[in-house]
Amino acid sequence: MGEQKRKEEAQKRYFIFERKNYQFMLIGIAFIALGFILMSGGGSDDPNVFNPEIYSWRRIRLAPALILIGFGIEVYAILLNPHKKK
């Protein structure tokens, strides 16, 4: 009987990540996507005309910061151990 129980336990499939890990991953992806959305635009339709809006605070400071925060959240989501007791 013990051998069959071990076989059943060996056949059980499990995920490496838990629900909490996936929630943090989705939050990180949202931050990264928002950063890329904020970084877009600012170009000029006419190549002979320079548009200084490309150097706005939103595109130079805010968007890259959001992207880096998103990558940090992704690393945290990967390293998070939901079974660890405090």
Rank of each mutant, 00 (worst) to 15 (best):
A63K: 00
R58S: 10
A77M: 06
P64R: 02
N81G: 03
I29H: 02
I73P: 02
N51C: 01
N48H: 13
F17C: 08
L80N: 07
R59L: 06
F50V: 14
R58Q: 14
A63E: 05
L66C: 09
R61I: 15
M39N: 13
I78N: 06
W57L: 10
I69M: 09
P52C: 05
S56Q: 04
S40L: 06
L34H: 00
I29M: 14
K20P: 01
P47S: 08
N48T: 15
N21C: 03
A30C: 11
F24A: 10
F17Y: 13
P52L: 04
I67W: 04
F71L: 14
S56N: 11
D45G: 14
R58L: 12
E18V: 00
K20T: 12
Y76P: 01
F31V: 07
G35I: 07
P64M: 09
A30E: 03
L79A: 14
I73S: 02
F31W: 11
P52N: 07
V75E: 04
L80T: 00
P47F: 06
E18A: 12
Y55M: 15
I73L: 13
V49H: 10
L66F: 11
K20V: 12
L66Q: 08
K20I: 11
G43I: 04
L26Q: 08
S40C: 08
F36A: 05
L68Y: 12
F50G: 07
G70K: 05
L80R: 09
L68N: 08
